[in-house]
Design a protein around this nucleic acid. Structure first.
Lengths: 270, 270
DNA sequence: CTGGACCCTCCCCCGGGGGGAGGGTGCACC
DNA sequence: GGTGCACCCTCCCCCCGGGGGAGGGTCCAG
């Protein structure tokens, strides 16, 4: 193919359906370097052979691939590696779609409320020693982290003495990052890998049970919160969840039962 | 339900899993007014009865409903109207999903390129009088606008004398908004509703045919652009598309044929 | 040589959040 | 009745990927 003319940015914009502004931004970002830049005037000139690249960028941006990621994809010479990066992003899109679906379902349940017969109990829980894995985790990573930690606990504890549970720092929800501890009760908690014996302090818990999958658990949290407030109590530490019936017990999400316990103490009424 | 205590913003944050910053922003945006604001100190105090509202907001934000729309949804007292607003947004999400799917498919075709046997011809087109509908349209609205305009043309022109087509201002792609004209050839173009007889000026066209659905049409545009440049031509007006085989002819998108013609003129080689 | 289309850089704006500074408050404990 | 400390306030800057517009230089056909 013969070289042909060189294109000014406006012509290149017509060929690629990318706006002139956007082309300039892509230049600044190192995504799409013009074939030539006139030193004296700063004019950008593109080659017709850059059109396909511009179109790939256009498609990736339609998929909301961040500019730095687009750069990485374009910069990787190996087509296999490139395909892998794209696949990564598509997987992220898929995950986001799942979250959206969950939010839609949950929203519908929120807007068609049934008089939830929420039963809350106050329960004194003594100190307990369990096999635990703990770490500082970002809110977005909690699910993946939980899966890994619980798998490790299952492997380390042969014969659990009760249902698994977790302690979730309030900062996790308030700041998007916080301390998380998941545990499995055990007669003789081992100490292998990330698994350590931990003694959970004694607490007074306001306890209720969330029945159904986790999408709606915020609602139960809120109802528990309302109850705590209505009974002149205040929150005093990380929330405790106990997975009475979970994915390990039945594949039917509607049958799952999660006990939520919020450490509380009595406050003077205002 | 007895009233219970009033909640400081931090406590309310723990109950709703919305960050303190975000709660303040929602206050400023008029989304979630605290039950009380201390005049002297500016302290925000919330009631436990505001928790469900906060959760609805949370879900809507997970669905990327813009804050003003959330406000509208919350402010509409009629549950039916509220449901309609939510449904609107879900429809928007669905449309976006379609666009994403199209982009994924197109990207795959771009990354697994076959040696496209693109044939481009140069053709002199004489002035033609057609039945046309034209307007200034935003790029995002083109599809919907096209559907309406073409339906009106179909109704006004009993017996079309050829395939339908459109003229698309380059500004449509460069600035996201531009002049669009769609037409249907007719022996005696009528003048009813938005339909007017229009004489298309004579042009020299670089013409190629895009076979397959429209998702990939950018690619053909780019290839046509390359050819134009390689042959020392430049673009001289709005692009013309002619829908030789379209949805009106066959439901199979893979069989669609769109002729793309770009008005050109010869430039001196640099 | 002149006019108009084209191109340049630079700064501000959007939306929905986060980081952090700097300073005032509420309250439990001593 | 202090005092310390967690909590709360406002205000400003940053992120992303674009768009709007000002103010000024450049290209090229007539």
């Amino acid at each position: 193919m013969h070289r042909g003319r060189v294109l000014a940015i406006g012509e290149f914009s017509r060929m690629t359906h990318l706006s002139v502004r956007t082309l300039r931004r892509y230049h600044d970002a190192g995504l799409l370097e013009p074939a030539t830049v006139d030193d004296a005037t700063g004019y950008r000139y593109y080659g017709a052979d850059q059109i396909p690249t511009a179109q790939v960028i256009h498609r990736l941006r339609e998929l909301d691939v961040p500019l730095p990621d687009v750069r990485r994809i374009l910069d990787s010479p190996d087509p296999g590696r490139r395909a892998a990066l794209v696949a990564d992003h598509l997987q992220r899109l898929e995950a986001e779609l799942d979250r959206t679906r969950a939010a839609v379902a949950s929203l519908h349940r929120l807007l068609v409320p049934e008089p939830a017969p929420l039963t809350v109990a106050l329960r004194a829980v003594p100190a307990t020693t369990v096999a635990a894995v703990e770490d500082d985790v970002a809110h977005d990573d909690v699910l993946a982290w939980y899966a890994g930690a619980m798998a490790e606990l299952d492997a380390a504890v042969g014969d659990p003495a009760g249902a698994p549970g977790g302690l979730y720092d309030n900062a996790l929800f308030e700041d998007g990052r916080g301390h998380v501890l998941v545990y499995l009760p055990a007669a003789a908690p081992p100490s292998t890998g990330r698994v350590r014996p931990v003694t959970l302090p004694p607490v007074e818990l306001a306890v209720t049970t969330h029945v159904a999958e986790h999408d709606d658990i915020d609602v139960t949290y809120g109802e528990l919160g309302s109850w705590v407030v209505a009974n002149a109590l205040a929150v005093a530490g990380p929330v405790r969840e106990t997975y009475l019936v979970g994915p390990r017990d039945t594949p039917d999400p509607a049958a799952w039962r999660t006990e939520i316990g919020w450490p509380v103490f009595r406050v003077a009424p205002r």
